[in-house]
Design a protein around this nucleic acid. Structure first.
Ligand SMILES: [Zn+2]
Ligand SMILES: [Zn+2]
Ligand SMILES: [Zn+2]
Ligand SMILES: [Zn+2]
Lengths: 562, 562
DNA sequence: GCGCGATTATCGCGTCCATT
DNA sequence: AATGGACGCGATAATCGCGC
């Protein structure tokens, strides 16, 4: 114990730790006791108010140097910006609403920014204001001159400054989970202070900045979407070439989600499929070899791999349904090609070095109905919902008019339905949603909705003929509608975009039911069904303001409501 | 005493001083004795001439950082100076090995060019000489000096001039089919004279130029590979955004093939999967709605769609086997998601406005063994070979030690084998290959080889136990080997790159057979099997000069040959 | 051999005693 | 107060050792 270099029981401090002596004592080479705000030496010399310590808070020499480099790079970037349009665009003050969106999108309170709508002010969001940022001048230091060009190569033009980066990250943070990005935001936030070469690859960072702009719509900041989109896309080939595969995958996922959410399906499909192929190629779905994660660094990398894999998985499994194509990520049939990577855990667990592992096929075991001891983090639940949705769609896709329904097929459907029910029972019940943290609330809503959509997929083909199936669809729709009523208007923008298509499928089943009702009993009262449909129309229309991808489906539903 | 850092009396070096280990030892993290000019480790590894030490001048990490800082500060000061002396750029270049030209490659006989090796001079290939080409086609061709690298702004818009474009296209033309690009080269050639807006998208054109450079290895022109690669990749997002989907797909395919052929599997997988997803998204696999193709333009567009689809199909089905992943392109199971696009026809037929069509599932019908009246163009035969390979691999992938072999599974294998035999009977027999046009000869060789590889896939799992399977594998290998003997050395560079991996799989089965032979009858004469293996080794080694992707498999085979 | 996490040894540098 | 220089911390280079 007490490997304090010095402290000898009592107060006899022998030698102060490095970096802890005050500036004056350093200069004078005298013993400093390191007391703040003023050390004894300084007090004795009546220079108490001049006793300063350098801000070496936990930073090592090297780290300090690296930070200096980062700042300088920042400064250079700023200066290099050709009498800067693009860089200054992002310095729009979001509180300046003078000329913004004519179509009133709601009251211009700060909820458009990043904080959760009803979040208590405990948020980690920093108090930096835009004007502060604007004024923040880079501390410039003089120094000896060497004129040698730095052979750094690819410093993309118009990267945001460090401060701006942090701000964009802070805007993005509450939306990270929504777009499938499980990541340790805190360390990411700190990493922007590092020199460029030690940061994440720019394709990844710029994809995040893109999302930061995207979620800030219709604030002026969103004008930079195209800019960051361009930067991220441009840097993608470099990431691939230099072997930054994880960053390439995560960036591709973010880009894909962006395209898909905006209804740019071709581009979205393109990048989603590419990301999945890359994940397959890297065998991210297989449990990694290193059984016990010794050093911190390996642990962090392992967590990255796991998160990246499940990010791809969610994207692939959910959106392949939207795009009506087969999922790309391989999971069997050969044992060696099955997904065996462990369920995602909470970020905090990884930080503590806990990585669960087992060699069973993660997804297939879950889909077979086995109960497992792990896999109940919110990220894992989200993954399970994706798996259920995809599986249900796979079964539903086999149905076509005139098919012969085998007993085995019915069996498969029943099994899956059972797994869905089991899964739902592990989610926080809907009437207790508000006891959750907001972030958890949103992801739970998404998980519930996907699960109910899976039920609809399993039954909609039979609903016309089979009363039980019809009732199951109706029940699922009712559950979804009841959740919608629990979502505040400001909260829609925090949901995973895939919930939009999901609602539209459930709504389609409601439309079918309405059709059948009106066909069978033309005079019956359908107002409750119509009300339910209106609920979906409301949800879809609200979310389509954020994620235009649902717009076509929305107009279909609205048309049906006359 | 004697904590002397280094020499302990005699020559027993304990630990070398910092900064004194040679570069290779540092990278390898092994003991270095620091002897100059070459340390023992390097000498032992026969890398004696590569043993370098970093110049004594301090390179201790922190010093490097500080140096970077002062450079940056310098840069800042320079930028801040309003009037600014233009800051003498790079007074010296520490790496300036003036005049380091690439070692002159082998004899500059024009076979490296593109004309078919034994082509009669009737070929369409122009009589351009290399010197002409160098002057016109390649703005960058002279070995790029380091200064060029420094100044290279990511987008040096060095698009080739019209004449250069035509020449690149001419170089490429004889290789088009090899990389899966069925296209009307003639009209493409003429289109470069059109205004840019009416040309094909630059991502596509540059991908072709990339291949032109690639196939011209090791001529100096190939130094531009990176350049065109960059241009093509950079333009890809634009093609997607502006809706030039066909060009985006075809470019992605070419890029993917380029990466894959060069063993850059991750990048190759990325673009292949992306292309397939896009093709799925555009429903290229479905027969288009326009039943009768009225105007010429629509006809050309239809042909483009069809060719693009089959290009993706070949890429997806063949290389997913190489990459050991599931194919991406959807083909069923639901009837509406099956491939129904007609077989590719000869280009001339499309030009004459003949487009066959029918609504049957193209591939699935073929795989079921039905005989069709169309689908015998060389492009269609190539497609069929891909389908067979993929299907065989799908079945083979279900096999794993300890599996239970169902009768149904055997049935599937037998059926597919029957289809393969049927298919082979529609190909020009091997002993008549030389009666074909060279282009046809090459694609027929590829088709035969893929078909035989499919046979190997179907049987290799059972070959150890089952004499018939063993014999089938042997027979397939014999057929492939006999074809190899009919390929002139100069002709290897014109074969579809996938033939490399294909040979390696067949060779693997030969290795297995050899193992079994030597195991069972240690004294038997295996010289004929070894000779066959040597044939594959020769083929693989020859083609690996063009397509490095086979290199790892090659070294495996060579090792077995001792 | 190779790649690389873990371990060992070196040496740059901050602290502060002692002398001027 | 100024400062040479002993002292020793801890960042980092060298190297070990292990699994392929
Ligand atoms: Zn002090
Ligand atoms: Zn002080
Ligand atoms: Zn050495
Ligand atoms: Zn050496």
């Amino acid at each position: 114990m007490a490997n304090k270099p010095t402290a000898d029981r009592a107060g006899t401090a022998a030698t102060l730790q490095r970096g802890k002596a005050c500036l004056r004592c350093r200069k004078r080479k005298m013993k400093c006791d390191g007391v703040k705000p003023a050390c004894q030496q300084c007090v004795r010399a009546k220079k108490g108010d001049g006793c300063e310590y350098d801000d070496g808070k936990g930073k090592t020499r090297t780290q300090l140097l690296k930070e200096t480099i980062s700042k300088l790079e920042d400064r250079v970037r700023e200066l290099e910006t050709p009498s800067g349009v693009p860089a200054s665009v992002m310095l729009f003050d979001p509180h300046d609403f003078s000329g913004s969106s004519p179509d009133s999108f709601g009251s211009p309170d700060s909820t458009y920014l990043s904080a959760f709508p009803t979040a208590s002010d405990s948020s980690a969001s920093p108090s930096t204001s835009w004007s502060q940022l604007q004024g923040a001048a880079s501390p410039l230091v003089g120094g000896p001159s060497l004129n040698d060009m730095f052979f750094d190569e690819r410093h993309s033009p118009f990267q945001p400054s460090n401060d701006a980066s942090v701000m964009l990250l802070d805007i993005f943070a509450p939306h990270a989970r929504q777009c499938g990005l499980e990541i340790d935001m805190e360390s990411l936030r700190q990493s922007v202070a590092l020199p460029i070469t030690e940061q994440r690859h720019s394709t990844f960072l710029n994809a995040i900045y893109l999302w930061a702009c995207f979620v800030s719509r219709p604030e002026p900041l969103s004008q930079n979407e195209d800019h960051y989109l361009q930067l991220s896309l441009d840097a993608l080939p470099d990431a691939l070439q230099t072997g930054n595969f994880i960053d390439a995958i995560r960036a591709s996922c973010l880009l894909s989600m962006y395209f898909l959410s905006n209804g740019r399906l071709a581009e979205g499909a393109y990048h989603a499929s590419a990301a999945a192929a890359l994940a397959d190629q890297l065998r991210l779905g297989r449990q990694s070899e290193l059984e016990d994660v010794k050093c911190m660094k390996a642990g962090a990398y392992e967590a990255e791999r796991i998160f990246a894999f499940w990010q791809v998985f969610n994207l692939d499994r959910c959106w392949s349904v939207v795009l009506q194509k087969q999922p790309v990520l391989t999971d069997g049939p050969a044992p060696r090609s099955m997904i065996t990577v462990p369920w995602p855990q909470e970020i905090a667990e990884y930080k503590m070095g806990h990585v669960s592992s087992s060699q069973v096929p993660t997804i297939q075991t879950f889909l077979s109905g086995s109960i497992s001891a792990n896999g109940f983090s919110s990220a894992a639940l989200r993954v399970k919902a994706s798996a259920l949705l995809s599986q249900a769609h796979r079964l539903a896709d086999k149905c076509y008019p005139g098919m012969k329904v085998s007993a085995q097929f019915i069996e498969e459907i029943n099994n899956l339905e059972h797994v869905i029910a089991l899964f739902c029972s592990t989610l926080m019940p809907i009437d207790q949603l508000d006891t959750l943290l907001l972030e958890e609330k949103y992801s739970t809503i998404v998980a519930h909705t996907l699960a109910q959509t899976a039920v609809v997929f399993l039954h909609r083909f039979f609903a016309a003929e089979n009363q039980t199936s019809n009732e199951k669809c109706a029940q699922a729709a009712r559950i979804c509608a009841s959740m919608i009523k629990r979502i505040g208007e400001k909260e829609f923008g925090f949901l995973d975009p895939v919930i939009g298509p999901s609602w539209s499928w459930v709504a389609d089943s409601v439309v079918s039911r309405l059709d059948r009702l009106e066909m069978s009993w033309p005079l019956s009262d359908t107002s409750d069904v119509r009300a339910e449909l209106a609920t979906f129309a409301f949800a879809m229309s609200t979310i389509s303001l954020h994620f235009p991808v649902v717009a076509p489906a929305l107009s279909r539903v609205q048309k049906r409501l006359v």
